[in-house]
Design a protein around this nucleic acid. Structure first.
Lengths: 202, 202, 202, 202
DNA sequence: GATGAATGAGGATTCATTCAT
DNA sequence: AATGAATGAATCCTCATTCAT
């Protein structure tokens, strides 16, 4: 059964003008795609005049970048906090997976922007890849290294490759979710994903 | 050390006019991105007049679709052939991984188009996802199911989730490769990836 | 009595597409002023599509520059030819004055562009001043120098200052003409201007 | 040798808010040109808020008009006073020339505005031409007429044409000065210009 | 089949001006 | 009187596509 709206937002209406514009941009980018989205459409959705957007952002591209940066800042902070709350490496892996799935599973528009719009150019991907994504992968890598040091993770694996692999798996779950016509809770896959990551196929 | 050209093609110059156009489109899309690529640029790279492209394709978007369809047809056929050559499920998994990494590792422009340009809109991704990607996942899923039936893969795992997970891992390896400034052979990661997929982290 | 149209053109409709566009640009710039002129208005006046203009010119500013350059090339050539036809320095001065007044008196739109639109920025004026206007002044200066060498012009005068002075006088006659509400033939002032230039006030 | 700044002002900082705004407008118009100048830039240069400008002026165009009107009022008064101080017509001509060159030679920004920005549209030029410039030309014309009545200026010349010619010469000297890369005192040309005006070329 | 000159729709952005405070 | 955040109209240029040759 298809969803009625692809971008139904369960997110509360933001207060500040900057946040309202960013929320509107997220929804419009998710709905129309970055290139087809019109700035005037975003302005209308945010309830401001076209020109007002340029008081808060440098332009259309800055809107996209800002959505990502704002989100990532919060994301990485809360991820590190959550991970620090548990000690067992395996549990930390599970926590990281859940964190990713829960965060994007909660905001479909944001997920679409993250999975689709942020990847529309090599240049843009390279930018993200060397900053925020690298930070994210570092967190995962350190969990793996710690697990190897503790003797609970196999030492034959390259931590960086494992980090990328985990990211790849979770990323694909999100993509699959936004493209799916079924309406399921993304975070419900946490345990299945974690089992596969920890134990493998055999 | 940075590569000299991001889209250096080791692919032989195609003969037919249709193939020349498609090759040019792949290179130009990889270089400039779909939205920034100009049809006239593709025509020039292919050595034909602008209008000629419209004798062979329906338009710019059809170029992108055709790149993908042409490639996928060959890809799935050779994947099934390779997989049929071995019997052990674990080996089949390894074969599938190698096939993916080898194919894209051989043609950087194609890899960029596959990882970046084909994903620039939800509508486009949905299209691919329900046809070619679904076929690909089905092949992986059947390998998993066979392995479970044979008793060599754990039965607690959902085959569809495993298929997606494997796709996600390999996909991320490719993305990481095209974004990397280091010049390594993508297919060299086959064994490491396979080990992780088969045995997991613990 | 005010003229019915400020830009009534007695100029024959040009043949080539490039010339048609340039003619239209001259008329529209004269009518509306450079900054207020719309490119689409020029296209409409030239009977071409908006985009066609960009096949022949680099943009709006290039239209203005091209009007001037095209005109100046012809102007300086015919001026030198006319001047070479007579020998007496005083007659050459008169010829130069007539040439200026006749050329602009024949094409009101061109005169307006020359007197008003080409001078709307310091950067633009500097550009013209160092190229075409300098060439023009050089021709005048050489006439003066020849007259001084021949002993018919007073040697106490700086030839460069005289050249500028003559230019200034004629230039002001043109400006005055385009701003005037009376409809007189600009070139009719040739003899009066020449008399003043040659004999002065006393 | 090029000047360090094209608009270096030797003018004392004005006191009243209205004068500060007008001074800032003169400098900014000279620097950027009327069309490219931003009202907010003028406000910033004047040290007031954007909106404050509209308490003193009707808008951007009124700033330009006001610069001119304010300046012209003083200019014409002091010109008439200076002229009245001498009796010989030839000396009056010299005084008028000096007055013009001195006034603009003292304030480069004002000179740029006078030579460039005030002439950016036919409508604007017509406006000036029929008011202030006409008053100026009248003063010159009367000097000529008086000189002819006194029998010291040749009667064959049309006084109005002579007035325009003198204006044209001096005007061109100013234009040439603001465009020149050499740093000379404009008023130093007074005697050379006067000699040419009075005695002509022959 | 091939060409490439011509088309014209479409949108991000700027900035003079306003007005609630 | 003064502020400055907000407005929104207005336009140059690009480029996918067409079609007469």
């Amino acid at each position: 059964m298809a969803r009625q709206s692809l971008v139904a937002s369960e997110v509360p209406r933001p207060q500040s003008k900057r946040e309202r514009i960013l929320r509107a941009a997220t929804d419009v980018f998710a709905q129309s795609g970055y290139f087809n989205a019109k700035v005037s459409e975003i302005a209308k959705a945010a309830g401001v005049a076209d020109g007002t957007i340029y008081l808060y952002f440098d332009g259309k591209e800055d809107l996209l970048t800002s959505i990502f940066r704002d989100h990532t800042r919060n994301y990485l902070q809360s991820l590190e906090r959550d991970v620090a709350n548990v000690n067992r490496p395996a549990e930390r892996i599970r926590i990281a997976i859940r964190h990713h799935l829960e965060t994007l599973g909660r905001d479909r528009s944001l997920a679409i922007v993250a999975q689709v719009e942020l990847r529309h150019s090599l240049k843009f991907m390279a930018l993200l890849s060397h900053q925020e994504v690298a930070d994210y992968l570092n967190i995962l890598r350190k969990i793996v290294e710690q697990g190897q040091a503790d003797g609970v993770f196999r030492r034959s694996l390259h931590p960086q490759l494992v980090a990328k692999a985990i990211f790849g798996i979770v990323d694909e779950m999100v993509t699959s979710w936004i493209l799916s016509e079924k309406d399921y809770a993304l975070a419900d896959q946490t345990d299945d994903v974690a089992e596969f990551v920890l134990n493998g196929l055999v």
